[in-house]
């Protein structure tokens, strides 16, 4: 499916700080968006931040189509994201969107979503979308600690949530790949969707392969443009080097050279 890409100044409706490193931006569009799908992303322009030259890509975290609103979940990593964390209600944020492909619609109801750190961002939108397809997924989320968990209630509206923390202060202690859900001899899932750090996605892909479960991941390669011309964000696939921003960010792991 091909979407018309917009360059638009959206209005910040809300900037909600979730914890020390994460915040939610709720944005209002003036024009009705054709369609947004889970897995798609935006390129945000960071104004007046001299050390931030390029736009910053963010997954769409959740949508409110009738009201022409959507949310971004952002982790403060450097100057650019720190600058965005200071946006106030009524400020404008220039975006190019929607960009990239989307997660596929599953052919099974036995679906697992796995997210780690900021990689949980597109999974809320995906869970909402799956609910519309009458699918209630199992959602496994990994955080550093209890203090860093957020929006568990929100995810719980759309699926059964399990969590892990590195220090064991909430849920099971350890990484998402170590969670007891994934340690059974035979897993209960026929489809896994995953987003997070590369090492995590590779581990999940390995588990999926072992159990012969179809698995899709959303990659976060660094990029300059986001709409297919700089060729900086490539990943090797069965069709050669493909652009994460155009042919991705969502790839079936059997196509990746992992």
């Amino acid at each position: 499916m091909v979407f018309k890409k917009n360059v638009e100044d959206l209005t910040v409706i809300r900037n909600l700080r979730l914890n020390q490193r994460h915040f939610l931006l709720e944005l209002q569009s003036e024009q009705p968006f054709s369609l947004l799908l889970p897995g798609q992303f935006v390129q945000a322009l960071v104004k007046d931040s001299p050390s931030t030259f390029l736009r910053r890509p963010f997954s769409i975290h959740s949508v409110d189509i009738p009201n022409k609103r959507f949310r971004l979940l952002i982790q403060i990593k450097g100057q650019g994201t720190r600058h965005l964390s200071l946006l106030k209600e009524g400020d404008k944020l220039n975006l190019i969107y929607p960009l990239g492909n989307s997660f596929s619609i599953p052919t099974t109801k036995d679906v697992l979503l796995v997210g780690g750190g900021c990689g949980v961002a597109p999974l809320l939108f995906l869970a909402q979308f799956l609910n519309q397809q009458k699918i209630r997924p199992v959602i496994l989320l990994g955080f550093r600690s209890q203090e860093e968990t957020f929006e568990i209630e929100e995810y719980s509206k759309y699926g059964t949530v399990f969590i892990t923390t590195d220090d064991g202060t909430a849920g099971e202690k350890g990484l998402v790949v170590d969670h007891s859900l994934l340690q059974k001899e035979k897993l209960d899932f026929r489809k896994i969707y995953c987003c997070g750090p590369d090492a995590m996605m590779k581990s999940i892909a390995r588990i999926a392969r072992w159990h012969k479960i179809d698995c899709e991941v959303s990659l976060e390669n660094t990029m300059a443009c986001g709409f297919g011309v700089c060729l900086c964000c490539i990943t090797p696939t069965d069709k050669g080097n493909e652009r994460v921003c155009m042919e991705g960010p969502v790839f079936n792991t059997k196509r990746l050279k992992w």
């Binding site: 001299p50 050390s51 030259f53 390669n221 700089c230 900086c232 964000c233 490539i234 990943t235």
Partner: peptide, 18 residues
Amino acid sequence: GNAYPRMAETTGGMLNSV
């Protein structure tokens, strides 16, 4: 082309090795 990573943001610019 070259292997990933191919891009680095720098002050007032970017490096590429596509």
